[in-house]
Structures are given as C-alpha cells and as structure tokens.
Nucleic acid binder design. Structure first.
Lengths: 219, 219
DNA sequence: AATTTTACCTACCGTTCGGTAGGTTTATGG
DNA sequence: CCATAAACCTACCGAACGGTAGGTAAAATT
C-alpha cells in the first residue's frame, strides 16, 4: 500500500505521526469528514510529507483499516486457539475483544465504523466486506465444531448459532463506543456467553445436570 | 425543522422530491460524502429550491433521520403491544422490523449508519443517541416485565437480557444490509427468538416441559 | 386592483478540498 | 569528494464545497 518499505529510518517517525493523527481523526469523524489538512495539521507535518508516504487519502485510510481489521482477527483467532470447549472459546474470544477494545479504542471504532458504514462512505473497491465476513466465519467454524462435538444444540443450524453470538458480542462493544455502560471485562464476557448458552427463558426444573452459576463460570 | 408548514400546496412536491433524492444519497454515501449538488441534481430542482425548504444541509439530513428513527420505534412499539407473552412480543417485534426493513431499505440503512457511525461523521448536537437508546429501552421494558412474570430467567439481570436480544436482532438486519444471506421473514424471527430463549447449549434431557420445536413456534 | 407571500430562478460568493510542481536539505554509497 | 536517492519544503492548482444575493412569476390576501 505505502510507497516506502517500512524500515525504521528517518522517515519512519513522520510516517508514524501521520498514522497516529489520521487514526484519531478517521475514527472520530469518518473518512469523508476528515480532511488531509486536518491530518497534517494534527500530525505537525506538511502535506507533501504525507503524500510522500502515502499515495493518496484512500491509501492512508486503507493502511489503517487493514491494520485494525487484521489485528482484531488475529486477536480472536489466538484467543480461540487457547481452549477447546465452546464455552471457553467464546469466553476467551469475547474477553480478548473487550481487552483489545479498552487498549485500542480508536482502532476498534475505526473497524466498526467502516464495517457498518454506508457503502459509499468509504473509498470504493476495497475488500473490507471480506475481512468482516472473516470474523464471522471464525465464530462459525467454532460453533460448527462444537455442534459436531455435541456441545451445542443440533436443532439450530450453525449459521444462526454464529449470528446469535456475533450479534451479541458486537452489539456490546458497539454500545460501549456510543455510551459507557457497565464494564466490559472477563466477568461480563462470561455472563454474556452464559446467556447465549443457557438461553433467556426461565428454566422449569433446575436439574443438577442443567444447572449453572451465572456469576462465576468458565475456567 | 423546515421553514414551511407542510401543507400539501405547490411546494410540497418539490420538497418530497428533495427528500426522496436525499434519502437515497445519504443512505448510500453517508452525510459528509453526499453533496448538496448531488441532491439537487438527482432531485431535478435548483439549489435555492432546496434552501427554501430546508435551512441547511444538516436540517435536511435531520428531517430524514428523525423520520427513520421514529418510524422504526413506532413499528416496534406497535408490534410489542399486540401480544402479551415475551416470546410472542419478541417475535412480533422482530418480524415487524424485518418487514419494515424489506419495505424501507434506505430508511433502515440511514438509521443504522447514523446510529453506528463515528460521532463527528454526522452534524453535531443532534440527539440521535437518545433515539437509539429509546429502542433499547423498549426491549428492556419488555424483558423486565417478562422477568417479573417469571417468563425469563431471574438469574440474568434485565439489562443483559435486553442487550442480548437487541444485539442479535440488530446484527441480523445489519448483515443483511451488507450481504444478502437467508431470508429475513417471520420464520427467521421465530428461530432467532427461539435461540435467544432456549440457548445454544445442547440440552442434556429433553423433558416434556422443556421441549420446543425449532421450526415452528409462537402464536 | 393593489399588495404581499410563496416558491422558486440565475449567477455568484468565499472557502476548502485533494493533490502537485518544482526546489531544497540530509543521509548514503561509490 | 561527488553523485544519487530519500525525505521533505513552499507555494500553488483547478475543482468542488455549502451557501447566498437579488430578481421574478404566480398565487393568495387585503
């Protein structure tokens, strides 16, 4: 994407400043509402300096979004790989996402705005949809395997199982971006997974085999 | 918001043309990426004609978004009022949302883009966050009452129950806006509510009292 | 009939947009 | 010691932006 190889020479600092400033602005104002002038002013570099490191505005944006989406994906994948049962996996994924969210507010916001924005809001011909689908596929694979292992209910197909979990997970993070509600930590993650697995309906009989503790679950 | 009272006189047709063109453009390109010139060209009116009917760009946008958000809210409220049990209510709400989505693609897209967009992407000082919260509150009230009636599991608090359902509901519609997956009809709504109520986990014993039919449920 | 209001029109305003032409400094390799 | 490329700089470009000044034809009001 960028014109230069990213060796840590002189220009690397300038490049980093640009990326940092652009990230904050793109994340908070979106692509179209962020001007090159704002970016270079905020980064305290000149306009040709920016155009030396990036082909054009969409190239700069693209570099940031790809980083955001790829990092999120890796985070999820690594979290899922650390455990084998579905409850542990989903909790680990959710905890990792929450953690990443707290540490990288702007990258998360950027990932979500571009994923859910209007199609023309963002430079066209980019393959962000594929990267968004990829995250869903990851969850899909997880639940599919879990169904095969008998951990999840066979009466639901794996697509709707994946949608159900992804929907809840993304919605929690998304609402947190707009309004701060209660803390998103691993306890919250465990509770969310619990609701997803156990269901919202009141249980008629709390048989020993079906019982669970809402407040402290998973490894 | 608008300068004129909206009596159906001569100018009403022009106003409607502007609104229709603006809706399509805002929904597909977002606020910042849509220019006044594009709108008036698409609506086949002159620029002062637009500025006669709307104070400025944000006023025009505001009129559309408020319509979109208010309509969605009314739809949900009416659907929920038609039944009394939580399964029926959630299914009705979801079915109504799916139906509205199919009939008003652009309005739905507009509602979602503005609800989930970056804060600066949209003209500031608007109270869209309140209107988004309102929808969540509606679900919250529904599940809270259901918990009180003993229909939902008391071990979950009502906030997370509301988040869980809203998350799934919104995510289904959102993904449909990006990529067409399987049909969003009342059958899909029933299945989603089913997953939400029954939970994803495999049931250890399918006792008569706990059994359910995934494929055909609710009233 | 005179006057006011509605509902626009053509033409244009200043600003900002993304992007560049062309020169300059600094590190690097021969 | 010189050439070459990297890493910028000042100054500027045409186009598009949101918005308006000032005039006008037709309808409504007095």
């Amino acid at each position: 994407m960028a014109k230069t190889e990213h060796n840590p020479t002189a220009g690397a600092k300038t490049r980093a400043q640009i990326l940092r400033a652009a990230l904050k602005l793109f994340a908070n104002n979106g692509y179209a509402a962020t001007s090159i002038q704002q970016i270079v002013s905020s980064a305290k570099v000149s306009k040709p300096a920016l155009y030396y490191h990036f082909r054009d505005k969409s190239d700069l944006f693209s570099a940031l979004v790809n980083e955001a989406l790829d990092e999120r994906y890796d985070i999820m994948r690594n979290a899922a790989a650390s455990v084998t049962d579905i409850r542990g996996q989903l909790t680990a994924v959710l905890t990792a996402l929450f953690d990443y969210f707290h540490k990288n507010h702007d990258l998360t916001r950027l990932a979500f705005s571009t994923a859910f924005a209007a199609p023309g809001q963002v430079p066209r011909d980019m393959i962000y949809l594929g990267k968004c689908r990829r995250n869903l596929s990851l969850i899909h694979t997880l639940v599919k395997d879990a169904v095969a292992r008998g951990e999840l209910d066979r009466r639901f197909n794996s697509e709707e199982l994946a949608y159900g979990f992804s929907g809840q997970a993304n919605f929690y993070i998304l609402s947190h971006l707009k309004m701060l509600n209660y803390r998103l930590d691993r306890n919250a993650a465990a509770r969310i997974v619990n609701l997803y697995l156990a269901g919202a309906a009141a249980k008629k009989r709390k048989a020993g085999s079906d019982s669970f503790d809402v407040n402290n679950q998973s490894k």
